[in-house]
Design a protein around this nucleic acid. Structure first.
Lengths: 211, 211
DNA sequence: TTCTTGTCACCTAGGTGTTAATAT
DNA sequence: ATATTAACACCTAGGTGACAAGAA
């Protein structure tokens, strides 16, 4: 999924947040190696604010502008991969997909979804926690995990898509949005690659205003 | 689900087996209590032949007849509940449903489904296995599990339904078969109860010929 | 003007018995 | 005559962005 994430990131990824909770697209997924096949691990994700700002989208210039200081941060939740805990061998067997993770803007959410502020930027983080079988495992807690950040997965939380190109790329690449496609769905790989080439030449327009 | 199982059992439950694997309906589900909330348990099911016979269905008399000795038994597989292993607290939190379990008649199945012989009778069994944390846990394996058999869940494996009343009860009670219902789906509980009363008076016709 | 919410048609994904054709 | 198989229409269940209405 890396190339798709990069494709979105070049345009400025947006993720919908809803009251009921919305999945991310692309889905965050990882391939693991180097784990102890016989040891237990817990896999989880959380989301860090990328800055202390609130944004707004200027339609006339098709760009994001700073709209002030960040709103109060919601209680920082984490999402445990539902297969946790599991053996290293199990995690390494195939790609691990966080497709059950949902984003919400409902501060009172009681479905365990990740709570984010709309119009704020976030960086997903991935954590692998070794389940230490030792008696005094707490003493080693600080060395029993590893965290990973993939900058191409950062995004703007929104309640509705702002950048039209993001909407089009979601429609083109998310199977559940197939109903909104114009052209032929057949041999979509070619279309994806074409988009790739097209957008890399558009990068100058994509920076976030930093003050 | 017990009353639904009993309803089917009074008619002579049939379960479809297919090459690709078919779920059971009703689904086998249990409510657990008395587990150690902090201990790990594995939950699983297997299927015992109820006798050494092969059956055939006589449509003219609407009854099952013995058609000879049982065919060679397939390799006895087990189905681990996909949430296994998990803490007792987790298992007791809510009803445990074996809705991922599938039955197949394909002797070469490599999807991990339960392999059964069509036209043979089976008794599902449910097992709770305590995951013993002790070093020499093998020595206690014989006392670290408990098995449960619910006779109302026994059934005949079939590739197509034989008893018309079974077909009708499946259609009436399985949400996925709603497309085949004739009457009003509204307030279905009343219909279910009516069927209940109706069929209990029919029991004389339902015995399996024992030789 | 900008942002949020709820409803909707349109999808994916997969669980039903039916049916017709075939096998035994 | 009885048993099996594959294709099928019709469901459940739930993930999409569009859209209109409402809120800030």
């Amino acid at each position: 999924m890396r190339s798709l994430w990069e494709e979105f990131n070049r345009l400025g990824t947006e993720m919908i947040v809803t009251k009921a909770g919305r999945r991310m697209f692309p889905t965050f997924q990882v391939k693991l190696s180097g784990l102890d096949p016989l040891a237990d691990y817990v896999l989880l994700m959380d989301f860090m604010p990328l800055d202390d700002k609130r944004y707004r989208y200027a339609f006339h210039s098709s760009s994001w502008l700073v709209a002030g200081r960040a709103d109060p941060a919601a209680p920082g939740r984490v999402h445990f991969h539902p297969d946790s805990p599991a053996k290293g061998a199990q995690w390494m067997r195939q790609i691990v997909s966080f497709d059950k993770l949902k984003l919400t803007n409902n501060l009172l959410d009681d479905n365990g979804h990740i709570i984010l502020n709309s119009m704020h930027r976030y960086q997903p983080r991935f954590h692998v926690v070794f389940v230490d079988p030792r008696q005094d495992s707490e003493r080693f807690a600080h060395e029993n995990f590893k965290s990973f950040t993939f900058t191409e997965t950062q995004f703007m939380a929104v309640t509705a898509y702002q950048n039209h190109r993001i909407t089009q790329l979601k429609i083109a690449s998310n199977p559940f949005a197939k109903g909104f496609r114009d052209c032929e769905p057949e041999d979509w790989a070619a279309g994806f690659h074409a988009l790739n080439v097209y957008t890399t030449s558009m990068t100058p327009a994509l920076g976030y205003e930093q003050q």
